[in-house]
């Protein structure tokens, strides 16, 4: 955006969902209850938030989302390899909108194996493609027994401020 719309871009900033959640939690604008997710939880690094962001913008989101997840679900475990070495879920690059389903599922075998080996009951991620791939393909094709939540879904489900307060 700063490349194409330099003038306009001076008047506002662009943030990711992770930036926003970290900001809310750090400033105390929202509070979360860590007792609602007692089960073992892991985090899947989406390629575009981790590796590719690091390459394109010089900043990869590796620690921030893990910090958010730990606020809500203290029983946390990482997969291996993770962060910049993480395996892709198999559904990136727009492949959802192409007919290459077989290749998509095949690609995901590595992620499925990692998820199974982590023994986590929940996996949290911050990308729609990744979440859909794990829910609708990996869990079914590779018999995974775990739940999937968006990062913001986890936070919303852990919010302390009751509806009445808002």
């Amino acid at each position: 955006m700063s490349r194409w719309f330099q003038e306009e871009a001076k008047h506002f900033k662009v943030i990711s969902v992770i930036d926003l959640l970290v900001d809310y939690l750090q400033k105390g604008r929202i509070r979360v209850d860590s007792s609602r997710h007692p089960e073992l939880t892991t985090y899947h690094d989406p390629c575009n938030y981790g590796r590719n962001s690091l390459k394109a913008f010089g900043q990869g989101y590796f620690e921030e989302p893990r910090w958010i997840v730990r606020q809500c679900a203290p029983q946390f475990v990482d997969m291996f390899p993770d962060r910049e070495g993480s395996y892709c879920c198999g559904a990136g690059g727009g492949i959802w909108a192409t007919p290459f389903k077989e290749e998509r599922v095949y690609h995901g075998r590595l992620k499925a194996r990692q998820l199974k080996q982590s023994r986590a009951r929940w996996v949290i991620t911050s990308c729609h493609n990744c979440r859909d791939q794990i829910v609708s393909s990996l869990c079914k094709e590779y018999d995974l027994d775990l739940g999937v939540k968006y990062l913001w879904e986890l936070v919303a489900d852990s919010l302390v401020t009751g509806p009445a307060v808002s």
Partner: peptide
């Protein structure tokens, strides 16, 4: 496509643009 988002920001005078994922 980015231009359309920028136009929205300018039209509504918002300070922060949140991307969905």
């Amino acid at each position: 496509i980015v231009g359309n988002l920028v136009a929205n920001m300018v039209r509504l005078g918002c300070r922060t643009l949140l991307l969905p994922e």
